[in-house]
C-alpha cells in the first residue's frame, strides 16, 4: 500500500492519481501482453511528429516549461494550441483521421544524447476483463496522462514497462535485447472515466482511473477504451539510459483526444463493440 500511496503522490505532477476511493485503481491488475487478436482492437501507427520542451496538458500555454517530449500524431501541437486548432491538422499516423496527439519523454544515452524513436503504435482495446460492448468513445478534448514523471522508484509494470520489440516479456527498466531487437516503451492509460470532465489537474480529484477485475469503480463508471502506447527505439545498449524526465523509471505518456470524433466513434462501435480485430501490428 505504501508503494501505491507513494505512486499516487508522485503522479501528482501529471494530474492522474488522487482520491482514496480510487487508489485501488491506480494501475491495471496485470500487464497487457500476448498475441494480438485475443481481444478486439484497433490501432494507429504513427511516425515522430516533432520534439519540444512543451507539455500542452500539464503546462498549457508555457512553451519550454517542460522536459523534452517526443510527439506523435497531430503535427499542430504546441504548448498553447487549442483543441479546435488540432482538428483537421496533419497527422503522422497511418490512420489519417487519427489526429490525436501522443507524447512521451525522450530516451537519452549515457552522454545525455537523444535516442530518437522510430515510431509509435497506439493500441485501443477493452481493459482486461471489461465488457467490450460497453465501451464509450473518449469525449472530444479528453486529456489523459499515464505513468509518473517524478517517480523515485520502479513503477507498476502494468502502467509503464519496457520490452524487446513486441515480446510478451515486460520489464520495469530496459534490458539487453537479443540480436537487432528494438527497444519498446509501453504506457498503459486509464480506462474508466467519470463521465463528466475532460481533464483534472488536481491529483486529489482525477477524472480517469483504471478498471479492476473487469469493472470500473462507482466513482468513474464509464468504461473507455484502454489505450496502450508503444514507443519503439532502435537497438540500444540498456546500460546508463535515462529519460528526459529523469531516471529511466520516470516513464510516462500523454494522450489528447483530437481524433476526428466521428471516426473514433465509428472505430469503437464497429471494431470494439462488434468484437473485431480491426487491424494488427505486424512487428
Amino acid at each position: 500500500m505504501a508503494g501505491v500511496l507513494a505512486l499516487s503522490a508522485a503522479l501528482s505532477s501529471c494530474g492522474v492519481v488522487g482520491t482514496a476511493d480510487a487508489v485501488a485503481n491506480a494501475a491495471p491488475d496485470a500487464p497487457i501482453n500476448g498475441p494480438q487478436g485475443r481481444v478486439p482492437q484497433f490501432i494507429a501507427s504513427c511516425a515522430v511528429s516533432h520534439f519540444a520542451f512543451d507539455d500542452p496538458i500539464v503546462h498549457p500555454g508555457h512553451a519550454g516549461a517542460s522536459h523534452q517530449h517526443v510527439f506523435f500524431g497531430n503535427e499542430a501541437v504546441t504548448a498553447s494550441v487549442g483543441y479546435d486548432e488540432l482538428l483537421g491538422a496533419p497527422t503522422t499516423c497511418d490512420q489519417r483521421l487519427d489526429t490525436a496527439s501522443y507524447w512521451t519523454p525522450v530516451l537519452l544515452d549515457p552522454r545525455g544524447q537523444r535516442i530518437d524513436p522510430t515510431g509509435a503504435v497506439a493500441y485501443y482495446r477493452p481493459g482486461a476483463g471489461v465488457d467490450h460492448t460497453t465501451l464509450v468513445p473518449y469525449p472530444p478534448d479528453l486529456k489523459m496522462v499515464a505513468g509518473d514523471a517524478e517517480a523515485d522508484g520502479e513503477q507498476p509494470l502494468s502502467v509503464v514497462a519496457w520490452s524487446c520489440g513486441v515480446s510478451a516479456v515486460r520489464s520495469v527498466v530496459p534490458t539487453e535485447c537479443p540480436g537487432r531487437s528494438t527497444l519498446r516503451l509501453l504506457v498503459t492509460f486509464p480506462d474508466c472515466w467519470d463521465g463528466e470532465r475532460t481533464w483534472t489537474a488536481s491529483p486529489d480529484d482525477r477524472h480517469v482511473v483504471y478498471s479492476s477485475a473487469g469493472e470500473c469503480p462507482d466513482s468513474h463508471p464509464v468504461p473507455i477504451p484502454q489505450l496502450q502506447l508503444a514507443v519503439d527505439h532502435p537497438p540500444v545498449d540498456p546500460d546508463g539510459l535515462s529519460l528526459s524526465s529523469g531516471a529511466i523509471t520516470t516513464g510516462h505518456g500523454d494522450f489528447w483526444n483530437a481524433w476526428d470524433q466521428d471516426k473514433l466513434v465509428n472505430e469503437v462501435q464497429n471494431c470494439l463493440h462488434r468484437g473485431i480485430t480491426c487491424n494488427v501490428s505486424a512487428n
Binding site: T134, L135, P140, G195, D262, V265
Partner: peptide, 24 residues
Amino acid sequence: VGLAATLALVAAACGGDDDSPVAT
C-alpha cells in the same frame, strides 16, 4: 454527430439501466 454519439453512449453507460447495454 460524433459528439452527440459519444454523449449518447456515455448516457447509456452512466444511466444505470442494465437492461439497455450499448452494445446491443
